[in-house]
Amino acid sequence: MRLRKADEMEKYQSDQSAKYGFIFYTIALLIWSAYDFYAKGNSGLQFTILLIGNAVYLYSRVVYNRKMNSSQK
């Protein structure tokens, strides 16, 4: 089995799927941690996972944005 490079449509579909998956997990973890905060008095591990996931996302966006801007100059 040989891997091939994805075309534009496959890249678009993959990007959309990743975006909606990220949004779902973010909202689900936020609701779960808010429920635990009000029910138990602490936000639990799910809020930590949410913060780390968003930090990784934002850091990777900054890194890729800088790479794209430096390669265009």
Rank of each mutant, 00 (worst) to 15 (best):
S14R: 04
D15R: 04
T26W: 02
D7M: 04
Y59T: 10
F22L: 01
S43H: 13
A39Y: 10
F22M: 03
K67M: 12
L51G: 03
R61E: 09
D36V: 09
Q46F: 04
E8L: 14
N42Y: 13
G53D: 01
M9F: 05
S60E: 02
A34C: 00
Q72C: 09
L30I: 09
Y25H: 05
R61G: 06
F37G: 13
D7C: 03
S71V: 15
S17G: 07
A18H: 08
L51M: 12
G53A: 01
I49L: 00
Y57E: 06
A18D: 05
F24R: 03
Y57Q: 08
V62T: 03
N69E: 07
K67N: 07
L30V: 09
Y12G: 09
A39C: 07
I31F: 06
M1W: 10
M9W: 05
A18N: 09
R4H: 11
T26I: 05
Y38Q: 12
A39G: 03
G41W: 14
R61Y: 12
K19D: 02
N65V: 02
S43K: 11
Y59K: 07
S60T: 03
V56K: 00
E8H: 10
L51S: 06
G44K: 06
L3A: 13
Y64E: 07
V62H: 00
M68S: 11
K67H: 05
M68P: 00
S33N: 01
L51T: 09
K67D: 05
R2I: 07
N42E: 11
V56A: 02
A18R: 10
K67S: 06
K73D: 13
Y57W: 12
V63D: 08
Y25P: 00
I27H: 03
V63T: 06
Y35S: 05
K67P: 04
Y35R: 04
I23M: 03
K67I: 14
L29N: 03
A6C: 05
Y25R: 07
Y57L: 08
N42L: 13
S14Q: 04
S43V: 15
R2T: 11
S70D: 10
V62M: 05
G44S: 03
L50P: 02
K40S: 14
Q16R: 15
Y64A: 04
R66V: 02
A55I: 02
V56P: 01
F47Y: 04
G53K: 01
